[in-house]
């Protein structure tokens, strides 16, 4: 958790990337991580593939399917991270659906995160109440930041409740959509960002969904601590594979004014 908090305290315009573990090839997880760090990425979310990713659009669905076909699993991902963690300074956040984590065992999962140097997790379908009642102490004692999502439909009181129980960042979903469905940020979305900012939250926000290029990244950074690029990056991996120079160009292009 310290790595995440330090980053959020020290840096503005945080550039973050999501990609699916084990895609396009099983052993690409770590070379991609290396390339992202070299290119100047600040924070990374590594997706744990799931058979039924109901909050994801076609791009990430496809990457999950391929990754599972390649043989990716939570166990294998932990092994991959453990090997490379010493050379990576970025905070690493694991993102995925609750069922595989549940099957792994939530306690075992958290202790393994701690062991291999994972800093936070995002489990969109782990409900707030369930986390609060059963797992919050476990996460906090292990120093693993659990990250909640908020959306344009989330009422203010619920945002404040989430804020009071977050210890890394809040994942601010930019629109009512699945991943990769929309591009660009409308006035309506900017109103929503302003509404959230007016709540004087303690937890920094990072904006995700619909961030795909330099212009959307820059706009998002005006309203939050940073932004996450997901589907656009996974698309690049689909086209170019785990190619270091392509990844470098992609990151540099989006970050060129920041």
């Amino acid at each position: 958790m310290k790595r995440i908090q330090k980053l959020l305290q020290e840096k503005k315009d945080i550039f973050s990337v999501y990609y699916t573990a084990g895609y396009p090839n099983l052993d690409d997880t770590m070379p991609i991580l290396n390339a992202l760090q070299k290119a100047g990425c600040d924070l990374v979310e590594i997706g744990m593939p799931f058979s039924d990713p109901l909050a994801d659009g076609p791009t990430i669905q496809h990457s999950s399917e391929q990754a599972l076909e390649n043989g990716m699993s939570i166990n294998l991902l932990f092994e991959q991270i453990k090997e490379l963690r010493p050379s990576i300074t970025m905070p690493i956040v694991l993102m995925g659906y609750i069922n595989p984590v549940f099957k792994y065992g939530v306690e075992a999962f958290i202790s393994k995160c701690q062991e291999v140097g994972v800093d936070g997790v995002i489990l969109p379908d782990l409900p707030f109440d369930e986390y609060h009642e059963k797992y919050q102490t476990l996460f906090e004692e292990a120093g693993i930041a659990n990250t909640f999502l908020i959306t344009p439909q989330t009422p203010n009181e619920r945002i404040q409740l989430i804020d009071a129980n977050s210890n890394g960042f809040i994942y601010m979903v930019s629109s009512s959509a699945v991943t990769g469905a929309k591009s660009g940020l409308s006035d309506e979305q900017l109103d929503y960002f302003n509404r959230v900012n007016s709540l004087d939250l303690n937890t920094p926000r990072i904006i995700g969904f619909g961030i795909s290029n330099q212009s959307t990244f820059e706009t998002a950074c005006q309203y939050a601590s940073g932004a996450i690029v997901g589907s656009a990056f996974v698309k690049l991996l689909k086209e170019k594979g785990a190619d270091e120079s392509a990844i470098n160009d992609f990151v540099k292009d989006i970050k060129r004014n920041n």
Partner: peptide, 12 residues
């Protein structure tokens, strides 16, 4: 049972 849903579905 319960409602293990992503936040996007919570208001609905």
């Amino acid at each position: 049972g319960g409602a293990f849903i992503p936040e996007m579905l919570y208001p609905n």
